[in-house]
């Protein structure tokens, strides 16, 4: 089930499965921690994603064959148990409105559902952080209810305001800072997730959980939200 492949002159990629699965992010995070502990002088960096972990290592400490063999041995004996695991639950307030949700009106029409139903479907799920990437603090959250899934826009927008909440297929995410992007924008949060607050770098970790809740237009404006 596990597979190790070559990724670069000083990196390997470990696959923990071949399908997106809710148990994987936590397992991968646990294994990454254990690997870093056991090979602290060898491992340079760890990049977890949905089903895999990219590991870069110090060439002066281990060769590809030596390091792959060590990792393989560790995988074989590793307990991927769910005990003593902690994951954070992060709550994110969202104003789901047509001024902030640039694609919301279109999605409601396409899906033939009311705004309340849409909000209910998006905010009732507890999402799992499957991966972090695209840009720092951009957490890929899954899975979105099938009734509100939507493919990426054919033409990405040049600028999406920071805090925008988007949907792409079965994923949802918050854009931490102004950026270009092709996700369907359904609302905006007041939370500053940008690196203007450097502690935001650790805001999400793979395996964490996220729940959105709806705030009104007045609440959004009262706390400094911009339209």
């Amino acid at each position: 089930m596990h597979k190790i492949i070559l990724a670069g002159e000083n990196s390997i990629l470990i696959y923990f499965g071949d399908k997106i699965d809710n148990s994987l992010p936590k397992n991968i995070a646990n294994f990454a921690n254990a690997l870093k502990n056991q090979f602290s002088d060898v491992v340079i960096d760890l990049t977890p994603s949905y089903t895999s972990l990219l590991v870069s290592y110090d060439l002066s400490k281990a060769s590809y064959f030596k390091f792959s063999a060590d990792v393989q041995a560790m995988l074989e004996g590793f307990e991927f148990s769910d005990s003593n695991q902690q994951s954070n639950l992060i709550h994110i307030p969202v104003y789901y409105g047509f001024e902030t949700g640039l694609d919301l009106e279109r999605l409601l029409a396409e899906k033939n559902i009311s705004l309340d139903e849409f909000i209910q479907l998006h905010s009732s799920n507890e999402y799992l952080v499957h991966a972090i990437g695209f840009s720092p603090v951009f957490a890929f959250l899954g899975e979105v209810d099938i009734r509100i899934q939507a493919p990426r826009l054919a033409t990405p927008r040049i600028k999406i305001p920071a805090g925008s909440v988007g949907i792409a297929d079965s994923q949802t995410a918050v854009y931490p800072s102004d950026s270009s992007g092709g996700w369907n924008i359904i609302g905006r949060t007041l939370l500053d997730l940008s690196l203007d607050k450097p502690e935001n770098l650790e805001k999400f970790k793979t395996g964490d959980r996220v729940k959105f809740y709806s705030i009104t237009r007045n609440e959004y404006l009262k706390f400094g939200g911009e339209l």
């Binding site: 990724a7 670069g8 990196s11 071949d18 997106i20 994603s49 949905y50 990219l54």
Partner: peptide, 10 residues
């Protein structure tokens, strides 16, 4: 494909 970590030079 499922997104995965990309090394320098890939």
């Amino acid at each position: 494909m499922i997104s995965e970590g990309m090394s320098y030079g890939s």
